[in-house]
Computed example of a mutant assay.
Amino acid sequence: MIEGWCAQQLGGRRLQKATVENRVHVLRQFRDHAGVGPWEWTAAGFDEWMMDLVSVRHMMPSTLRTYQVVIRQFCDFITSPHYGWATQCEERFGTHPVQVCHDWNTRPHLQDHEANPRRRPLTRSELQQLFDRADEEVQTRLSAGRKGAAAAYRDATLLKVVYAWGLRANEAVMLDVTDLYRNPKVPSFGDLGFLRVRYGKASRGSPPKPRTVATVMPWAVDVLKDYMGNVLPLMRSGTTNALWFSERSRRLGVRSLSDRFALYRDELGLDSSLSPHCLRHSYATHLIEDGHDPFFVQRQLGHAYQATTGIYTHVSEDFANRILREALAKIPPLVDLT
């Protein structure tokens, strides 16, 4: 059964070998816990395994869902009439496999916010403090005649780009100059009207998902233009088109971005669990608060599900109250029929 399922995953679905191997590892964990073959698996046995993963192994909700998806997909395979496993099991064992995952014992896709609650979007005030601190570092190094002013300027620009285009850390550091191009609908942005993300987050077993992000923050265009015109030429090496370089003229890594963000975060006294990814949360939240359509925000972020965008969006109380007031104002007054 497992070999047939692997063939389906690797051949028909074209998943990567490592992904399939990880899924098989999950299957074998459940098989060992149940102590019986797949034709004898039950929903009750599956529930007991889930309880063990939660209470003993303290598994995170997102990992639990991954395990549930694996078992559900495998059960779909072995119960499908297309492959004949149910008939084979009836003939050999006098019973047949069933689907042990159902709506009552599995978690829906991203129904609730499951991440660490402190990994949240920055408020606009916190965001401004972060950017001001990054800019201050540039001025401090220039005034003192210290090395690293160009690197500090690069980092300040990179933090702003991550926020202004709603990027993941790896998406940002992998940008090339050629990933920026004109939006004919907004000629004032010049060659920075669109940003092409080539290394978007991949689904399990799939290659990176590219997407195109429209520029929506005019101030960011000026920031990036200034960096590309005045700082990038000082750090670029050879003929590579990379947008961000280390001081050794190599493409910048995610670690460098994370370290710089953590330095400023700690100096400002922000939550220690915050990472550069919170800038992406901030982007989603602020676009919604500024009146952008939720579907547009979803496309900008590259999310397949609106529910995924939902966990990125944590609007402020003032915004929620304003929306409520506007909604109440649209309700027609009651007509006195007496």
Rank of each mutant, 00 (worst) to 15 (best):
A169W: 01
A150W: 07
R118E: 13
V162A: 14
H109A: 12
D103K: 13
L159P: 07
F131Q: 06
E126A: 10
T123E: 06
L167I: 10
G145I: 03
A115E: 11
V161M: 11
D176F: 13
L167E: 03
R141A: 04
L175D: 03
K147D: 07
R124L: 08
D179Q: 12
A144E: 10
K147C: 02
D155R: 01
A149P: 06
E171N: 12
M174G: 14
N170C: 13
A149W: 11
W104K: 15
V161Q: 09
A149N: 00
R154A: 01
A150L: 08
D103H: 13
R120D: 01
L110G: 10
R118H: 12
T123C: 00
A156P: 03
A151W: 03
L175T: 09
Q129E: 10
Y153R: 10
T123A: 09
M174Q: 14
W104P: 00
V138N: 00
L180W: 09
R154Y: 04
Q139A: 08
N116W: 06
A156T: 00
E171F: 05
H102Q: 08
D132G: 03
T178E: 15
G166V: 08
R107C: 09
L127F: 05
V177C: 15
G166W: 03
A169V: 15
K147Q: 12
R120A: 05
M174C: 14
C101I: 14
A150M: 07
E126H: 04
E136C: 01
E137G: 10
D132C: 07
L130G: 02
P117W: 07
T106L: 01
L110P: 01
V161R: 05
W104T: 14
V138A: 03
T106R: 04
S125Y: 11
A156C: 11
L175A: 11
Q111L: 14
V138G: 01
E137Q: 09
S143D: 10
D132F: 00
D112V: 07
A150V: 04
L167D: 02
Y163N: 11
S125T: 10
T178C: 15
P117A: 00
E171C: 05
A115D: 13
G145F: 00
E126G: 02
V162T: 15
L159V: 09
T140V: 06
A164N: 08
N105L: 07
T106H: 05
L130C: 02
L159E: 05
D103V: 15
A152P: 06
V177E: 15
D176W: 11
L110V: 14
M174N: 15
H113M: 12
L130F: 04
S125M: 09
R120V: 06
V177Y: 14
Q128R: 11
L175N: 02
E136R: 08
A150Q: 09
G166E: 06
D103R: 14
P108V: 02
H109Q: 12
R154M: 04
T123G: 07
L127C: 03
H109C: 06
L180H: 11
E114S: 12
Q129W: 02
F131R: 05
R118S: 11
A152R: 10
R124E: 09
H109M: 11
Y153L: 05
F131A: 02
R120Q: 05
P121K: 06
N116R: 11
